[in-house]
Amino acid sequence: MAIALQFAGFDTNNLRVSVSPLAELMAVLHVWAEPDHHFESSDEVQAIARNLDERMIAEFNALSPLWARFRARFFFPVGTESNQTFDRELAGVAALPLEEFVSMAAEAIRGFSKDLPAALELLHDEKIRREFLDTCRSRSLGRFELAEQLLEDPEKFRRRIIGFCSDCWSSFFRKEWEDLALTIGRAAAQLAGRLNRADPIATIASLSVTAKAFLGTSEVRFDKLQQRRVKMSQRELLLVPSRWIGNHLTVKDNAGYPVIVHFPAQTRQEELLQIQQMRDRLSALSADSRLELFRHISAEPMTTSELAVRLGQPAAQVSRSLRVLREAGLVVSDRHGKLVYHRIDTATVLRMGPDLLATLTR
């Protein structure tokens, strides 16, 4: 599955890099809400949470569907200005037309965008409203309660979100942003420079290891658990760097607003795995004979001939097994004089659990 951005007819004057403090606050809240998907940052965000009062923690828990897997669009820039202050971004949320705010909030509360009824139908058509609430209830009681509150009084709901974000700013995020702004600003400036020097499609694809550029068809595909194609002709595109989002890339393409690519500013992309690489590693250990070999060399480095004796297998068969494990990045072979010793790559093996989770959820 993939999200494909189709750039045929795209005007590069509509491509910008934007720094967004509100999107970065949303990233912090997302990590806090889903620590299992962001284990590399969970300790940092928990340290922040320990300094918050019970009222803010309760409000965070109640509103968390808005920044869970399907982040609300209004947390990302709604205009084309490259860099805005936190207050101006919140003012942009307050100024959104009510119907569009309701659509963005309803989409996030439900947790997926497919076949979302129009805002006016959600607000005024009793049958459609009831079906929407039933869908939210089937997902969780918390989502159902949020949906009820949204449809009962959308403006009150909007004020609640803006108030919570303002409380986050004053209680912890103002200081956090002072530390982050330089890093994220530097990443934005570097990307803007690359876009000026290099092919924009290839540059956009370089933002994530999950992406592939198809220059012949002017397309970038992001490997995501979603399937859609976005025609970029006549659309604006904002590339928004994030430090807190880890290695997770998000694409938002709500009609009438700039397409957003929210990408990691610091993650070393060369260290992230393609799904095929993870599949190769799991496959390499799936055969009993290779797993038994792997257990032997996890205890101590061994030569091919030693392994053949230990396993009771021909040396040629052991060599084939070693080659599969080595190509999967799980085994390292070192020459000492005339002998070659094989050992597991301990660092890679220790990372397999976190790498698997990161590969599946980004």
Results as ranks from 00 to 15, higher is better:
164 F>C: 02
93 V>R: 00
4 A>Y: 09
29 L>S: 06
320 R>C: 02
292 E>N: 11
298 S>W: 00
78 V>N: 08
316 A>K: 10
207 L>W: 02
66 L>Y: 07
86 F>W: 04
354 P>N: 12
39 F>W: 13
34 E>T: 15
143 R>S: 02
296 H>V: 00
328 A>M: 06
332 V>C: 01
34 E>C: 14
103 S>L: 03
341 Y>V: 07
335 R>D: 09
142 G>D: 08
101 F>C: 09
27 A>S: 12
254 N>E: 04
187 A>M: 06
132 F>W: 06
269 Q>C: 09
23 A>R: 04
171 S>G: 01
200 P>L: 06
294 F>W: 05
318 V>K: 00
281 R>F: 02
264 P>R: 10
207 L>M: 09
282 L>W: 04
219 E>F: 12
354 P>V: 10
273 L>R: 13
151 L>D: 03
295 R>F: 07
252 K>L: 11
353 G>F: 15
214 F>D: 15
4 A>T: 15
192 A>L: 10
134 D>L: 10
190 Q>L: 15
154 P>T: 06
3 I>N: 05
73 R>K: 01
316 A>C: 02
345 D>E: 06
160 R>Y: 05
136 C>L: 03
44 E>P: 07
110 R>G: 05
239 L>C: 04
263 F>I: 11
253 D>T: 13
107 E>Q: 07
335 R>K: 13
327 E>S: 11
307 L>H: 01
142 G>K: 05
113 S>N: 09
31 V>I: 11
9 G>T: 08
269 Q>P: 03
15 L>I: 04
25 L>R: 04
174 R>V: 11
291 L>S: 09
327 E>H: 07
